[in-house]
């Protein structure tokens, strides 16, 4: 009982610590400072892009992992899920040597198309997508595995081709899982720090997302940093509440 209490306090106290530091009176003006608005706007843009990209590439990836048997599938799945456990800063280093100006792919992007991803908003989006997509893949794959596949059989006997079945039957049936996965991915993208700062840098208005701004402003303008933290916290609580409704209110 005591240990449980200590464990709970350990998780709850930092949250209380954060909340009691908020100067509620000046919260609105703190959030209206140029650094804060730039960071928040960038975070919204980057995290939504990262979520969109995660859905665009993650859903087909989840389909392949759940439905196609091929040699090395378990290795492929482990690799896809690696960003969940790998330190984000390591992910950032990896992104740098893959897509940076000197990187595996990045050098050709730069030489041929004059595209430089490092220190760009696109780079921040990539870093967020890298850490967020596994959440979507794992959730959608689980939904695909647990759904009743006989609905797909029924659709096939009604003359539907595989793409039609995926669009009109499978996706609607796994929609709750897809929404949950997208929400998780979005929350993860929003809080992304290590990979972003390593790969995309910390340029205000271009790659300095909210977590980066919090880290930077904690010394110079602690009130603004705390205000931004509280916004991130509120968003995470909202996502949790949404997922809880999804999971408990499952039709």
């Amino acid at each position: 009982m005591l240990f449980a209490l200590v464990g709970f306090a350990f998780i709850a106290l930092p949250l209380i610590g954060l909340i009691q530091q908020v100067s509620w009176g000046s919260l609105w003006t703190d959030l209206r400072t140029p650094e804060a608005t730039a960071a928040l706007r960038l975070s919204v843009i980057c995290s939504l892009w990262a979520t969109a990209l995660s859905v665009l590439f993650g859903v087909p990836l989840a389909f392949v992992l759940a439905r196609v048997t091929f040699p090395g599938r378990s290795i492929a799945r482990a690799l896809v899920l690696l960003p969940l456990v790998v330190p984000p800063v390591v992910g950032g280093v990896g992104l740098f040597y893959a897509f940076g100006r000197e990187g595996l792919v990045g050098q050709y992007l730069y030489d041929w198309f004059d595209i430089q991803l490092t220190f760009s908003t696109a780079g921040a989006v990539m870093a967020e997508t890298f850490v967020a997509m596994p959440f979507l893949v794992i959730t959608v794959e689980a939904a695909l595995r647990s759904m009743d596949r006989r609905y797909e059989d029924a659709a096939a006997t009604l003359g539907a081709r595989p793409m039609t079945i995926a669009r009109r039957v499978t996706l609607p049936l796994i929609a709750p899982g897809l929404v949950a996965g997208a929400a998780l991915a979005w929350a993860r993208a929003l809080g992304e720090f290590g990979a972003t700062i390593t790969f995309a840098g910390n340029i205000q208005g271009r790659t300095q997302t909210t977590p980066l701004a919090v880290y930077l402003l904690l010394q110079s303008k602690p009130d603004v940093a705390i205000g931004l933290s509280i916004v991130l916290l509120a968003v995470c609580v909202a996502v949790l509440a949404l997922l809880r409704d999804r999971w408990l209110g499952f039709r």
């Binding site: 059989d153 029924a154 096939a156 081709r161």
Partner: peptide
């Protein structure tokens, strides 16, 4: 393939698409 066959199937628990 099933989608190319002139068949209709009534499944055991009907499998009407719930959505």
């Amino acid at each position: 393939a099933p989608e190319g066959r002139p068949i209709g199937v009534v499944f055991q628990d009907y499998l009407l698409f719930p959505h």
